[in-house]
Amino acid sequence: MRSDNEQLKVILERAKQAKAAENRRKVYLYSALMCVLCVIVAVAVAVVLLSPIDKPMPDDDAVLNGGNLDISSESAESGNDIAESDEKTSSESDVSTENYGEKYITLMLSEYSSAGIKPDGEHLSDEDDTLAGEDAPASPNWSEYPDEEGSDEVLLSGTSSTVAGDEIYSTLYYRFDMAETYEDLDRLWVEDGNSPPSYVSNLGNAMKWMLYYGDTSWYHTVLYLEGAENANQYLDILRESGENCGSSNYRITQCKSFVQDGKYMLYCVLSAEAVRIFAENGVRCSYVGDEDGFVNFEILESADDIKSFCQIYGDGYTVHEP
């Protein structure tokens, strides 16, 4: 039989063991809890990382599989090269300008007509639907326009281009994207050559981008006419467009005219469709607004102002540099 002191020692020893066991149990419990939390965090991070991200550029595969194109196997191969070029350096790009342009032209037009959505994001009215149907004027074949010599169109292959398409795209998209975030930074001109390659060359680069993104309802546009002798022809086009005010597609809200160095210039605020009509008729259209679709009218009081603003043969879309 144990004495009281012996019993006390036994009690203290067992209490020590019990506390150690309790501590071990707590450690195991906390460890298990931390493991569960880590798994939950890992799953959450994986879900976030693996979630689909909206890509601003159309998928090449989607274009190729959409049935809107009748391209040769060589063209398809070129398209695949475009998709792969995201992972390659600029020197590895092997895309012909013609095929590349056709694809995106077809995509843009088919998207607008099939979805009933204008490039500026508005839905087509009933009248618009008619225009988009059989009675609507055929979509211009942009590729039929001859490339001007010294054009600012991007050539993505061959020796005539030094800038890769994907590089241009990433740079410009980055600038456009960052422009929404950083408002107080310096502005840059969109460089000649930096443009989506899917538009005819008589559209300015910034105008191409504005049409491409379709994020502005109205396009502040300078129309360069080839000569004063043709001014009446273009004014007829303008007047004819203005008569179609029932259709917001062709609406022209403001217009000023100038003559500079024998060239007739108009400063207009046009809809995307009006821009398309003028471009289809060979008028050079350049954008002079900022990324929000606004323009400072005070600096466009004269032809010289417009000249300096647009540098005559370029257009003046301004973006913020990150």
Binding site: Q7, V10, I11, R14, A15, A18, K19, E22
Partner: peptide, 9 residues
Amino acid sequence: ADAFVEILV
């Protein structure tokens, strides 16, 4: 002893 340990812990 176990009863005392329980109270102790």
